[in-house]
C-alpha cells in the first residue's frame, strides 16, 4: 500500500466479518485462516484467529507500529453458500493485486451476500432431478424416479418454508425428511412399482450433511481437531434428524 494505511479497527472488524461469512457459508477452518491472513497482509497488518463453530476471535497487529486490535464476533447460523466462498476467495486475490479500499470490499461483500445464483423454482427442480438420479443409481425405474422427484421437491419446499419460520435447523431437516418419506413411502405401503424401497431410501438424500462431514474431515486432517469434531457432531445430528423423520413415516405406515 503506497497511500495511507487504513485504521486497525476498521481492518479488524472487516476481517472478522469476512471470516464469519466464510464460516457460515461452508468454508473449512484453514481456508478462513488463510483468506483473512492474505487480506490482513495486503493492508500491512498481521492477524491471528481463534476459529470456533459459532464465534471468531481475532487479534490484528500492525507490522510497523504498536497498534493492535482484538475482538470477538459471533457468526451467523450456518447455511451453505458456495457463491460467497468462491466470491470471497476471488476478492482476496484482487485485494492483494489491485489494492482495494475497505469501502470497495464492503460493497463487494454486500453484493456477494445478496446473489442467489438460482431462482427458487430452479433449485427445487434441479434438486428433485438429483433425487431421481439417486433413485436410478440405486436401481429404481421410471415410477420410483417420478415419485422420488415429487417427494424431494415437496421435502425441500417444506424445509425452506420451515427455515423461513425460523424453526430449529435440525427440526427443519426433520420436517423435510418426514414430508419426503411420507410421499415416497406410499410406494412401499401399496407395493407399487418393481423396487419401491429405492424411492423411500433415496427421497431423503437431498438432506444429507455433505458439507459438514467433508469439512469435518478436512479440519481433522489440518489439525483443527476441535472444529473437526464439532462439525462432525453437527453432521451426525442432521443425520439423526433425517433418520427420525423416516422412522416417523415407517411408524405411520406401519411398515
Amino acid at each position: 500500500m503506497s497511500d495511507s494505511i487504513p485504521d486497525v479497527k476498521k481492518v479488524g472488524a472487516l476481517l472478522l466479518e469476512i471470516g464469519g461469512l466464510l464460516m457460515s457459508s461452508g468454508a473449512s477452518s484453514e481456508r478462513i485462516r488463510i483468506t483473512t491472513n492474505r487480506i490482513a497482509e495486503a493492508f500491512g497488518y498481521s492477524c491471528d484467529l481463534l476459529i470456533t463453530h459459532r464465534a471468531l476471535m481475532i487479534s490484528v497487529n500492525s507490522n510497523n507500529s504498536n497498534e493492535f486490535f482484538s475482538s470477538l464476533k459471533r457468526t451467523s447460523p450456518h447455511g451453505v453458500n458456495f457463491t460467497v466462498v468462491s466470491g470471497i476467495s476471488k476478492m482476496s486475490w484482487k485485494i492483494v493485486e489491485e489494492n482495494w479500499s475497505i469501502e470497495l470490499i464492503k460493497e463487494e461483500m454486500a453484493r456477494l451476500k445478496s446473489i442467489s445464483a438460482y431462482p427458487r423454482w430452479l433449485t427445487l427442480v434441479l434438486v428433485g432431478l438429483a433425487g431421481s438420479a439417486f433413485c436410478f443409481l440405486f436401481g429404481g425405474a421410471g415410477l420410483e424416479m417420478a415419485v422420488t422427484f415429487t417427494a424431494t421437491v415437496a421435502g425441500l419446499y417444506v424445509r425452506q418454508e420451515s427455515h423461513k419460520l425460523k424453526f430449529n435447523p435440525y427440526l427443519n431437516v426433520f420436517f423435510g425428511s418426514v414430508t419426503a418419506s411420507m410421499i415416497s413411502g406410499l410406494l412401499s405401503k401399496f407395493d407399487w412399482g418393481t423396487n419401491p424401497e429405492t424411492a423411500f431410501a433415496t427421497s431423503v438424500l437431498f438432506l444429507i450433511p455433505g458439507v459438514p462431514l467433508i469439512n469435518s474431515f478436512t479440519d481433522l486432517m489440518d489439525g483443527n481437531i476441535m472444529n473437526g469434531v464439532i462439525r462432525g457432531f453437527n453432521g451426525l445430528m442432521i443425520a439423526l434428524a433425517i433418520a427420525l423423520g423416516m422412522l416417523v413415516s415407517l411408524m405411520i405406515y406401519q411398515m
Binding site: V80, S116, L129, A130, S132, L137, F206
Partner: peptide, 17 residues
C-alpha cells in the same frame, strides 16, 4: 445421472452458474 445428482447439489449449495 451422476452428473444430474451433482448439479442438483450444486444448485442447493448456490454454486456460481
Amino acid at each position: 445421472w451422476f452428473a444430474a445428482a451433482a448439479i442438483g447439489f450444486a444448485a442447493l449449495f448456490n454454486v456460481p452458474r
